[in-house]
Structures are given as C-alpha cells and as structure tokens.
Design a protein around this nucleic acid. Structure first.
Lengths: 123, 123
DNA sequence: CAAACATATGAATAATTGTTCAAATGAACG
DNA sequence: CGTTCATTTGAACAATTATTCATATGTTTG
C-alpha cells in the first residue's frame, strides 16, 4: 500500500463536501477485518459449483457421493468445495456410518442467494 | 466435463431416496445460465476493494477521484473496479463536466451486503 | 485384521483476476 | 486549438483458485 501523500497529490477539488462525507464514511464503514471477512464470504458464493451444491442442500440433507452424482462431478472436487463451504459456516456435516451428510448451516444462505437471484432475474 | 457413465460408476447406494430427490432438485435448480450469472454476481461482491467502494456509495454519490482518495488507492485501480460494478448493474454513473459521479444502481446491493454482514457478524 | 467403501487431503496445473504502468479519451477553459 | 484535468483502457505481472490425480484417513463388514 502506498503512503497517503501519494494519493493526496492526485485528487480533484470538490473540497466543500469532503469534510462531512469523509467523516460519515469513516463512521459507517466497517473495520478492515470485517470488510475482508465480508468479501471472503461472498467469494464463497462466487463459484457456480458451490452455488449448485447449495441448491441441492436447499432441498435435502445429502451425502458427498450423492452430491457428486447430482452435479456430475468428481467426488474429490465436491469434497474440496464442501470444505470451503464448511469453513465459512454455510454448511454443516454429520457422519452416518461410512457416509457424511451435509446440510445448510444457516438461514442467511437462502436469503443471500434469493436476493442475488432477484437481482440477476430483473431486466 | 466427463461423461455420465464415469460418475454413475462411483456412486453410493442410498437408492430409495434418489428418485424423488433427483426430481425435486431438477425442478428447483435454476438453469445453467442463471447459475452462472448468479455466481458471477457474487464474484463481484467477493473483493474487498469493491465492497469498500459500495460502502462509500451507500453514503453519497461520489466521483472517481474522491473514491480513490477515500480508499487510498490509485485512480486507475478504482476505475477498473467501477467498470466491473457497472457491468453488473450494481452502480450507475453520470457525467458532470470533467468528473464522473457514481452511485448505487439498485436496492438489492444494500440488502445483499447487509445479509452478508449479519452472517459474518454472528458468532 | 484385511478388504471394500466413503470421504478427505496434498501437490500440480490451468485459468482467472486485481493492481500497476503507460497511454488514450473526453471535457473545460484560456 | 493546445493544455490541463478526470477518467478510461490495455497489456503485463503476481497472486489466487478450481479441478484433477494419487494417496491417505476412517468406517464397516466378512
């Protein structure tokens, strides 16, 4: 990250509004770490394989092998993605014998995807 | 993409549930293209620079140069990200003399980010 | 306990992506 | 009309990431 001076140099001159806005933005903007976590969360939704996994889990609790079949993907690929979903607490797992069953961990998952769908579907 | 046989081979044997679930999932799962668009949309939210831009725009309509200053980033980097935000209709722009002012294009933006925040903030 | 099954993991590869730098538009203004 | 200012654009580079392949872990069953 460059130091502040360098950016200060290249800035336009709508000075009046700046003071207020700067203050406002600094108040409302989440902390650096939270911003990072937020981006990280959305990154998880930003892959169509993971989205497809979530859509299956919207309907039922399913084992890895069944997911792989539904999505017509390698079991390994699915497992890798499930790990990411789990790390981000979008999904939880439960062992039953040899199989491990995955299900949604959180109601937000559905809401977030639904909002995304609304945006994508309009116009 | 491999052909179906190969995936069929490596599948476990909870056969009973399969028929119903398969049908259900196929009904509810959006089309391939929509899934792709959805992932694409979330990819846009999956970068902390773009998130930060959006948080500034939550407060006010702002020109590129002011954004660069707020975020302490190169004006070029900001412009590149604004282009992505605009292509995905999260942001709109308006020229006023030499400057170009950006603002939110859509109410969903706020909702999606808020839901994400809720998820990140819990536990 | 060995064999079979379900899943996880690690390394490697190919593809995607954010930032920088340099240069190109495009508008205002003397 | 040439200069200046605000922004965009394109190429290049570094970093991240999804999938594959091979192998490991863990569970059941004979």
């Amino acid at each position: 990250m460059k130091d502040y001076q360098e950016y200060e140099a290249e800035h336009c001159d709508s000075v009046e509004v700046h003071a207020d806005l700067l203050k406002l933005v600094r108040e409302k903007m989440p902390k650096e770490e939270e911003l990072y976590d937020l981006a990280e969360l959305f990154k998880v939704f930003g892959d169509s394989t993971r989205i497809r996994i979530l859509f299956v889990l919207f309907e039922a609790e399913v084992c890895v092998c069944d997911l792989a079949e539904h999505l017509q993907m390698t079991q390994s690929a699915v497992s890798h993605q499930l790990k990411i979903l789990k790390q981000n607490k979008l999904v939880k797992s439960r062992r039953e014998g040899k199989s491990i069953f995955y299900s949604l961990a959180d109601a937000h998952v559905r809401t977030i995807i639904d909002q995304g769908l609304e945006h994508v579907e309009e116009d």
